[in-house]
Measured scan of single mutants.
Amino acid sequence: SEEWVEIALRLLELGREANINGTILNLHKEEIEELIRRLLKRI
């Protein structure tokens, strides 16, 4: 399964939302940290 691709796409999506909203992603901080942890486990 290409889970890391899904994770990377989700991170990009959150990054785009952050640019549009001008936020520092506090809302998504925990989700982002969890996604990155899952991503690093696969490398």
Rank of each mutant, 00 (worst) to 15 (best):
S1K: 12
S1E: 12
S1W: 15
S1C: 15
S1M: 13
S1N: 06
S1V: 14
S1A: 10
E2S: 10
E2T: 08
E2H: 12
E2F: 14
E2I: 14
E2M: 12
E2P: 09
E2K: 13
E2D: 09
E2L: 14
E3M: 09
E3K: 08
E3H: 13
E3G: 12
E3L: 11
W4F: 08
W4R: 01
W4M: 07
W4P: 01
W4D: 01
W4K: 00
W4I: 08
W4V: 07
V5Q: 06
V5K: 05
V5I: 07
V5R: 07
V5P: 02
V5F: 11
V5D: 02
V5A: 06
V5M: 11
E6C: 15
E6W: 14
E6Q: 11
E6M: 13
E6D: 07
E6H: 12
E6I: 13
I7H: 01
I7R: 02
I7N: 01
I7Q: 02
I7E: 01
I7T: 01
A8W: 13
A8P: 00
A8G: 04
A8S: 04
A8V: 14
L9R: 10
L9I: 06
L9A: 04
L9P: 00
L9F: 08
L9E: 03
R10F: 14
R10I: 12
R10G: 04
R10S: 02
R10N: 02
R10D: 02
R10M: 11
L11N: 00
L11K: 00
L11F: 05
L11R: 00
L11Q: 00
L11I: 06
L11H: 01
L12C: 15
L12N: 01
L12T: 03
L12D: 01
L12M: 07
L12H: 02
L12Y: 04
L12R: 02
E13V: 08
E13W: 13
E13F: 13
E13K: 06
E13Q: 10
E13G: 12
E13P: 02
E13H: 05
L14I: 12
L14S: 01
L14D: 01
L14E: 01
G15W: 15
G15Y: 14
G15L: 15
G15F: 15
R16Y: 09
R16W: 12
R16M: 06
R16P: 03
R16S: 08
R16F: 14
R16N: 04
R16D: 03
E17S: 07
E17H: 09
E17N: 08
A18I: 14
A18L: 13
A18R: 04
A18F: 11
A18P: 04
A18K: 04
A18W: 09
A18M: 10
A18V: 11
A18T: 06
N19Q: 12
N19M: 14
N19E: 10
N19A: 14
I20P: 05
I20N: 06
I20A: 06
I20Q: 05
I20W: 11
I20E: 07
I20H: 05
I20G: 06
N21M: 12
N21A: 11
N21W: 14
G22I: 14
G22D: 10
G22H: 07
G22V: 12
G22C: 10
G22A: 12
G22E: 13
G22Q: 10
G22Y: 06
T23E: 12
T23P: 09
T23S: 12
T23D: 10
T23H: 13
T23R: 05
T23N: 11
I24A: 07
I24Q: 04
I24F: 08
I24R: 05
I24G: 07
I24Y: 05
L25G: 08
L25H: 04
L25W: 06
L25V: 07
L25E: 02
L25S: 12
N26W: 15
N26P: 08
N26S: 07
N26I: 13
N26L: 14
N26Y: 12
L27G: 07
L27F: 05
L27P: 04
L27K: 13
H28G: 09
H28K: 06
H28W: 15
H28Y: 12
H28Q: 09
K29L: 15
K29H: 11
K29M: 15
K29V: 15
K29A: 14
K29F: 15
K29W: 15
K29P: 13
K29Y: 14
K29R: 10
E30N: 06
E30M: 07
E30Q: 09
E30Y: 05
E30L: 06
E30D: 13
E31D: 05
E31S: 02
E31W: 14
E31I: 11
E31H: 08
E31G: 03
I32G: 00
I32E: 00
I32S: 00
I32C: 15
I32L: 07
E33P: 01
E33R: 13
E33I: 14
E33W: 14
E33T: 11
E33M: 14
E33Y: 13
E33Q: 10
E34L: 12
E34H: 08
E34I: 10
L35T: 01
L35S: 01
L35N: 01
L35E: 01
L35W: 10
L35V: 03
L35K: 01
L35G: 01
I36R: 00
I36D: 00
I36S: 00
I36T: 01
I36W: 06
I36A: 02
I36M: 04
R37W: 11
R37T: 05
R37E: 02
R37V: 04
R37C: 14
R38F: 09
R38A: 09
L39F: 08
L39E: 00
L39P: 00
L39Y: 05
L39W: 07
L39G: 00
L39M: 05
L39T: 01
L39I: 11
L40G: 01
L40E: 01
K41M: 13
K41L: 11
K41F: 10
K41Q: 08
K41N: 06
R42I: 15
R42H: 11
R42T: 10
R42M: 11
I43Y: 07
I43M: 05
I43W: 13
I43S: 02
